[in-house]
């Protein structure tokens, strides 16, 4: 069963990606996690996302395309990346979510994927 691990990051996490003091630690934390996912044979796909400032929101209203600068939801934590894994059940998915590199602001959400639409 496929699950998506949605990784939400805070402003501090996004800042750490480019902060000369912190970026080395930030970027060093991810490869071991991804390697572990691959070694276990559960990794399906994934992506790291550029920070929310880079986001553009598109809405369709009355057939009109409404384009706005910025992310859709104005929340403290923003989606920073996602990983799709294939595991037998929720508990195993939660175990993998719990292994995601930690930071004080990071929150991880797990959702079961829908079956592929045929």
């Amino acid at each position: 069963m496929n699950y998506t691990i949605l990784i939400y990051e805070g402003a501090g996490d996004f800042a750490a990606r480019t902060d000369p003091q912190k970026q080395q630690a930030y970027w060093a934390s991810w490869p071991p996690y991804l390697k572990a996912l691959r070694d276990a044979g559960v990794f399906v796909s994934g992506a790291g996302l550029q920070p929310p400032e880079s986001a553009t929101t598109v809405k369709l209203r009355d057939g009109q395309r409404l384009v706005q600068d910025g992310p859709y939801a104005d929340t403290k934590e923003q989606l920073g990346g996602l990983v799709v894994i294939d595991v037998p059940d929720l508990d195993t998915a939660l175990d993998w979510a719990a292994r995601c590199p930690r930071s004080p602001e990071r929150v991880v959400e797990v959702r079961p994927n829908m079956l592929p639409v045929t």
């Binding site: 069963m1 699950y3 037998p88 059940d89 929720l90 508990d91 195993t92 998915a93 079961p112």
Partner: peptide
């Protein structure tokens, strides 16, 4: 059902 919780 939807979250695929294991009966263990």
């Amino acid at each position: 059902r939807d979250a695929g919780m294991a009966f263990e």
